[in-house]
Design a protein around this nucleic acid. Structure first.
Lengths: 183, 183
DNA sequence: CCAGAGAGTGAGTGTACAGTCACTCTTATG
DNA sequence: CATAAGAGTGACTGTACACTCACTCTCTGG
């Protein structure tokens, strides 16, 4: 027994495929077959690894926040100064770099859109809790600075999802001015 | 000819139903039958009024931004002072009141989530353009103040969609502190 | 009173998709 | 070598949904 099961190795691979595919199509716009194709397994086997589409999405979202937390931590460690504002700023820069490929950003937006599904709402709150607490504790910034950090993160999400960054109009530059890296 | 057609009177009614139903279920999670039921007509007739589901969603989104603009204008007119910051603040308060029933807020989030569909992305940008320009011109505030206005609006969207407002934890109060009316 | 334009629908069609099940293939240990 | 546990799949099923079409009903103008 204990084949040093490939299933436990396969699960995170499938979760990573789910991140990519759900980021592309959103929850309702992505099929299990899409994820299976990306992971190069059969759709049937996806259901052996995850009991339902909801759970698969939750796994993807958890993975997404895990990567975000790692990135924030690395950014904070690499900050020039360890003063609160400088650390927050460094985390913001690291986040901007992370989401330059849009995948993790889009997944979060799609998650917001289906947060009424209880398990997904719960996973989203759990991720936001981790991010908020980490930003607060690691930087030592004030509550309002942390709130601002998250608010401008959300603005960044809007800019990317709505495709505002490429627009040459004045209104577009008002919204995206100073926002880093929105490709 | 020119029956002073009921169709032209029916269209905005159906669009209003579409706002409600799409806000509930999102683009992929809402069916034409849902909208038809709300508007008390047959699904087939929806397709006589709107050529496709995409176009119906766009009509709903346009209606949503129309109402938002009206609200911002009314808020600005009712501001105590006509100083830039005071006007922006009054618009924020009016917006907070408008979205206390969540419908228009949710529709915007769902629109973000399907903004890759070209017509929808375009309608979303058109709405944001109107909001941004109006906020800037009507208040006369600085670019960065307008940007902040939108950023905190997005934070408000996050708080509502993720259901953060009811959470008693500290991280939740950091995010939602001072945000008005996030019922 | 009749012709026709437009409002409105019932009954489909084709397709796509979540989830299931019975099955095979591989490996590894007794 | 036998057997069994787990990896993995092909072929379904039932349902739901975007969109179509042929049709009826109700006016209104001549």
């Amino acid at each position: 027994m204990s084949t040093l099961s490939t299933a436990e190795l396969r699960m995170p691979v499938v979760a990573a495929s789910a991140v990519r595919e759900f980021a592309r199509g959103g929850y309702h716009g992505t099929t299990i077959a899409d994820v299976a194709r990306d992971a190069q397994i059969s759709p049937a086997y996806v259901f052996k690894l995850f009991p339902s589409k909801e759970r698969l999405f939750v796994a993807a979202l958890d993975d997404c926040f895990e990567r975000i937390l790692e990135t924030l931590a690395a950014g904070a460690d690499a900050a020039g100064s360890q003063e609160a504002e400088a650390v927050l700023d460094a985390m913001g820069g690291a986040y901007a770099e992370l989401i330059s490929d849009r995948t993790l950003l889009l997944l979060q937006v799609h998650a917001q859109s289906v947060a009424e599904i209880p398990e997904i709402g719960q996973a989203l709150r759990a991720g936001l809790k981790r991010v908020t607490r980490f930003a607060k504790i690691r930087s030592g910034a004030s509550d309002s600075a942390v709130q601002r950090f998250v608010a401008y993160g959300q603005l960044c999400h809007l800019i990317v999802t709505a495709g505002i960054d490429g627009v040459p109009d004045e209104w577009a530059t008002i919204l995206s001015h100073g926002i880093r890296h929105p490709r």
